[in-house]
Design a protein around this nucleic acid. Structure first.
Lengths: 335, 335
DNA sequence: CTGAAAGCGCTAACAA
DNA sequence: TTGTTAGCGCTTTCAG
């Protein structure tokens, strides 16, 4: 059967508490000789702590939870990797769960019960509804991560959607595009990521003294590659004068590039493209994808600082941090 | 403070056990009227079970662990998504951790203590060493997932590396390629994924009555896009007669395509390319990536069957399942 | 159908 | 420096 502290205590002829003290390396709480004896027993028996019991007792594990809408978007994969790296610095580890995407029941990831499993939770709110998040009541610190507008009682690290979209669109205009589509955009929506970026696209036109095309917003039922590809192909067949596309995410941009190719047009000669997110992949597709870099590292660092602050019990008002975007120019726009 | 069963019991004037019975929906263990009273209290107080306590007591959570070498490879993202979907069918959920990639300490993900946190663990063994895995001693069921050759005492679902590589290479030869590189290959290695696929590449040549190029194996320090791109570019400059490339993974294939483009050659006219994995992305890059599909869904289904079998305590000998690969033809090879 | 007692493995607080 | 006591919140006996 599984070996407990009790076994180790018996084997080394000390009390439970002494074993606990050794295991947790409490400074100067146990004599060198005893410690050695205990460690020997630990080794011989192959004892390892029961994290579940420890957690029940003192409420701490080294586990931080990250809840993403879905596992299979590279955007989240990159986010996960960055966070894991940042947390590793302080000896904690990341455990990732999925909230959305699949069936209804997956909202269970947001349940108090599951959240309470972690020392703190980072919640990627893309695709989540305000109300779902607003329902969360828990003593576990939660930090929101992402673009949506969300209940202000939470700490929130987000990126400057409107500014980034403005930057992207302005770059297209600057490079000569005069018929610029926003693929994945949304007019008159709520404060969603898509609506906010669409506003940036509009404002960039206005600031350049232009008016966006009437039919300039090409909404997508889903921000998926296949979907973007299909819609763009159809659209370019109808309105071949399109010479610039702001894709609302890099993921969408991949589909946009494929759609342009399907329409037998060239990038950037016929149509220039800018994405948003700066996925690692964007550097290695052909042509390289011009995009908006949201300073992921900064965001991740800030997010971890926020959870640490909360874990430490600091009682400051909720913080809302915004990361500015930066333009990264590659081959999908003209030199 | 947090609400416990005790609070609910008090509030509804019943005993702890009755509340537990209601919460766990034990059939016919509690009268309808009492149940309603309890549920009302649960609702009113906003009670949710403490999963940690439950786990300590009965050793079960609905949590299955998946340990991947790294978060930011699309291959694992897709695996995670598939597994989560499969597990959701039976009301369990997936929690993903990272084993490799970053610092030394990350091997901690394989520690008994962390593994014991789950009902069962799926371990993606790509990049793990035999010995690391062989050290694992735990009562939690572990199913290995992936290509490496591993201690046979574990259940293991893997794919037919040699067969798949054979299929890929034979296709290139069939389409007229006579100078076929394997990018990311490895000669005389141990039973690693790279070595096994390299053997398939060799055998395909032999079966076609050809001998592979002497310099046909282009090893990569890492199976990364950037790395593959660089090596391929350099290599094509040296030996422009290369007319076919088998990329050891789709990830590598992306880099290969970029490298070919850097060398101002065309795919598939000048160089044909086949990958391995059938990543979703492969369909949407230009040109579409011909690849080997390892029947991911089958693998995932089998893996879940295996863990269920072990969780149920069936005492059958370790199973080793192999999924055959199938060729998926797209634009990166000739019609 | 409902309840009381015991204990999962650990650690905080105190005593020796 | 070491040991004892108590209890985290839950579920598994076993009695009523």
């Amino acid at each position: 059967m599984t070996i407990t502290m009790r076994d180790v205590a018996r084997a080394s002829g000390v009390s439970l508490m002494t074993v606990s003290n050794v295991i947790n390396g409490r400074p100067g709480a146990v004599g060198t000789e005893t410690r050695l004896r205990v460690l020997e027993a630990v080794d011989r028996l192959g004892y390892e702590v029961n994290l579940t019991a420890r957690r029940l007792r003192n409420g701490r594990t080294g586990a931080i939870g990250l809840i993403v809408p879905r596992f299979d978007h590279p955007y989240f994969g990159e986010l996960e990797a960055r966070l894991a790296r940042e947390l590793a610095k302080s000896g904690r580890h990341l455990s990732v769960e999925q909230s959305g995407a699949s069936a209804e029941g997956e909202l269970a990831a947001l349940s108090h019960a599951r959240i309470a499993t972690y020392d703190a939770v980072l919640l990627s709110v893309v695709g989540l509804h305000y109300d779902d998040v607003d329902k969360l009541r828990t003593s576990v610190p939660i930090v929101l991560l992402g673009e949506q507008s969300m209940p202000s009682r939470f700490d929130h690290v987000q990126l400057d959607n409107e500014g980034g979209a403005h930057l992207a669109t302005a770059h297209l205009i600057d490079k000569g595009a005069r018929n610029v589509l926003i693929v994945g955009g949304e007019e008159d929506g709520p404060e969603s990521m898509t609506a906010t970026r669409t506003r940036g696209w509009e404002r960039a036109h206005a600031d350049a003294g232009l008016t966006p095309r009437r039919d300039g917003v090409l909404p997508l039922p889903e921000l998926e590659i296949a979907c973007a590809r299909e819609e763009v192909r159809k659209r370019l067949a109808e309105t071949p004068e399109i010479d610039g596309i702001f894709a609302i995410t890099d993921q969408v941009a991949i589909g946009v590039l494929a759609g342009i190719h399907d329409a037998r047009l060239r990038v950037p000669e016929d149509v220039q493209v800018v994405g948003f997110d700066n996925l690692a992949l964007g550097e290695h597709i052909t042509p390289g994808l011009t995009t908006i870099d949201p300073s992921h590292d900064w965001m991740v660092k800030k997010a971890v600082e926020l959870i640490d602050q909360r874990i430490a019990g600091e009682d400051v008002p909720p913080q809302h941090l915004v990361s500015p975007g930066a333009l990264v120019v590659r081959g999908s726009t003209k030199a």
